[in-house]
Computed example of a mutant assay.
Amino acid sequence: MDIRWLEDFLALVELRNFTRAAEFRNVSQTSFSRHMQALEQWVGAPLVVKGASPVRLTEAGEQFRESAQIAVERLLESRSSIRASQFDAMSQVRIAMPSVLARSEFKHILDAFGQRNRSSFSVIVGTTSDVVARYLAGDADILFAHDCTAIPVHAALADHQRLVLQKDVFQPYAASDPVRRKAISFPGTTQKPSPLVAYSQRVYFARLFEYVQERVQTPLPHKVRVQCDMSDVLKEVIADGYGVGWLPASAVDRSTHPGICPIGGPEWRLDLDICAFRPRQTLSPRLESIWEKITARAARNCAC
């Protein structure tokens, strides 16, 4: 039995869709399906209702769900604890953060530690889904990521310590050039849908966009013109007038990127937190000291 089968099963339980779960786990759908079949053979009973959309668990699947969650958490916590106990022999603090935060926040995070800090840092960068998965797998000591109380970035992070560093907002942007902007209708109509610059389905911000659509009573007729994982790419495409796209405000520096500006009313915006996560168990003295510095920075931000 492979722990990855359990992690795949839990991803499927959370996302309720084979395609999205496979994308989240960064495997092909064929491999993902094989893992589910192998797990069901190991358990000795079907875990999901065949053909159900969204995915539904069988009675055996519901029974197995809690055991799988506990098993994965204990195994990962055990590995994390063993690695943490060896940390004093290591020189690096392992940080995971999505690229959208690495560009805007990493320097500020380093500044919080101070130049006299003797630690060196190893940084894992990628999409939010990727870095969260790497952190939960024990490849990083501290995770920095956007998080929303309405749509948590990952259910498993509820068991980890969460620290809000600062507030952010997820909102729609369009080209600031009047000519390009005039060609864009927002929120659009059935006859003239809004051109949309969108995130790929596996990206956390795609889930936030879906939540905004569900929350707003006004329909959003749209047609996807460009789809991509990376916010930086979407910014450039939005500035070129390809359509409307949602971005975290922290990712948009108007002084260096004046080509886009917010569009739409407050109903299209969603409050976000920029958070730091860590395991709840006691870490090495060096990591505990670094967490104290992160906490102090968060307190200063809240006081401003």
Rank of each mutant, 00 (worst) to 15 (best):
L196V: 06
C148R: 02
H154S: 06
D177L: 15
Q161N: 10
S185H: 14
S176D: 02
S185P: 09
D168I: 04
V153Q: 03
A198W: 08
Q213R: 08
A156L: 11
L163M: 15
E210T: 13
A198T: 09
V169A: 05
L208N: 07
A198Y: 04
P172F: 15
R207W: 13
V153Y: 04
V169W: 14
R181E: 10
K192F: 08
K223I: 08
P219W: 00
A156H: 13
I142Y: 08
A158S: 15
H154Q: 15
P221I: 03
L143N: 01
A158Y: 03
V153C: 11
V224C: 00
C148F: 08
F186S: 01
V164F: 10
R162T: 14
P193Q: 06
A174G: 11
A155N: 14
H146Q: 09
D159T: 13
D177M: 12
K223L: 03
K192Q: 11
Q201G: 05
T189E: 14
H146T: 13
P187T: 10
K182N: 04
A183H: 07
Y204H: 08
P178S: 07
T189F: 05
A206Y: 13
A183I: 07
E210S: 14
A150C: 04
V169K: 15
V179K: 12
R225D: 00
A175T: 09
V169C: 05
H222N: 03
R202H: 10
T218H: 04
V153L: 04
V197D: 02
A145D: 09
R162K: 14
V197H: 03
I151A: 13
P187M: 15
Q201K: 12
T190I: 00
H154L: 09
D177E: 11
Q166L: 14
A150L: 09
A150Q: 11
F144V: 09
A206F: 12
V224T: 03
R202M: 02
F209H: 07
Y173K: 06
F186P: 00
A174Y: 00
T190K: 04
A158G: 12
R207V: 09
Q161M: 07
Y211I: 05
Q217F: 13
Q201F: 09
D141K: 08
A155I: 07
D159E: 05
L196C: 05
V153I: 13
V179H: 13
Y173R: 08
G188D: 01
F205T: 00
Y173W: 08
Q201A: 09
T218K: 06
A183Y: 13
